[in-house]
Amino acid sequence: MVEPLYPRDRSWHPAAHFPDYKSSIYRSPQKPLIKAPPSQNEDSGPVFGHDMLGPLDNDLIRNFAAPGELAIGPRMIVHGRVLDENARPVPGALIEIWQANAGGRYRHAKEGYLAPLDPNFGGCGRMISADDGTYRFMTVQPGPYPWPNGPNSWRPAHIHFSVFGHSFAQRLITQMYFEGDPLIQLCPIVRAISDPMAIDQLTARLDMEATAPMDALAYHFDIILRGRGSTPFENRPEGN
């Protein structure tokens, strides 16, 4: 018998309705979520095999670049582990990432920031966590950028992560920020998370041990997915 997933601690997640982040005002459900009865259905999930991956899928410096060319920007390794709440590695997790280029510009039809596109940077990558839960990719440091929220809103530099665990109920999209960035605490998307420790969990650490000398800096970022267990969760008050 498989133990159930721990309930999602909604007080640790960002508020659905956070008016400082304007887009959330009309896109946040106003009625309480309904607790679904335990079922195998959401508890299962799609399986992704390594055969879906191309050799450059986890190298954003080269995966969109013309032959012999490289994306522009500070070269960077991002690595870490996918773990569950019991600190057990989650192997086989598909991680998809996307980000702006070094100037803070996304390659997207609806994006019009002044900073130019880099013809050699697409901005997407993906990988599958190894047996010990580890993952790793190469990229360039994304730039911060302004966005139309308030009169002068800037996003801290960040990388988006989409993660599949083994269960569709573990499905998670989040963002990774960079240690020491003063824009983190100014960002309403970040501040929709009320607990500073939760924000800290999304902040990658410079990892000199993992740098490639004369090549790339490294940042460490662990991703924690919901875990299983029958023991009661140390519940914080429910809330949205």
């Binding site: 960002p14 997407c124 999209i173 999304l202």
Partner: peptide, 28 residues
């Protein structure tokens, strides 16, 4: 017990990472 990584919005450019061909990012 660890805490689940907090969610953040997928944002307006989710297509770049999740459906890059739809976003016009071909060949990756």
């Amino acid at each position: 017990r660890l805490k689940e990584s907090p969610s953040q919005t997928a944002g307006p450019y989710v297509h770049i990472g999740c459906t890059p061909n739809f976003a016009g990012i071909k060949g990756v």
